[in-house]
Amino acid sequence: MLSIPSRSQPQLPGDLAVWVLILAELLVFGVFFLAYVAAFHGHVALFRAGQATLSIPAATFNTLALITASALVVQAIVALQAGHTRKAGWWFAGAAVLGLLFLLNKWLELHHHMQAGISLSTSLFYMFYLGLVFFHFMHVLAGVLILAWMSRRCFQPRPPGMNAAWSAGAYWHMVDLVWVVLFPLVYLL
């Protein structure tokens, strides 16, 4: 019921340039992940000890927030395709708010670590943890801004085209996808 009517010809959902950007970003994160894995392999005990200090409930909540936001973005695109621009605007806004919740929660988590005097040089584990999480944080921030902007445009007389909507969505899903790997990798494994 919710799946988007698919188009007959294979077609990239969104702008080619945005997809190039997404691939490049995935490459950056991918290299970072593999570096993490390599470092983990060399210092298993250190990494385990570090992981024990992280808050899994907070991160689980964040995973839910991002995934739900992604689902809302899909709703927004469905609505936009059906011509319900105001409805799409609300869906985008909802997704942006969930993104904000993620940011807030993450910020509290980072703040908690800072308070404990943890910094990049505390240990190799925290270098990776803070580095990865902060880098991803900046991407969520960018994603939220994009979603908020899309939402605003939906309420304006000239609503955004499907190309823009697909592109914004794809970027957000990329941020989501990266987190879905990052979360188990850094928190659980």
């Binding site: 950056v28 290299v31 970072f32 570096a35 470092a39 990049l120 040089s121 190799l124 270098m127 990776f128 580095g131």
Partner: peptide, 9 residues
Amino acid sequence: GYWQWLGSV
């Protein structure tokens, strides 16, 4: 030392 990782990546 963390720059060796961040810089390389």
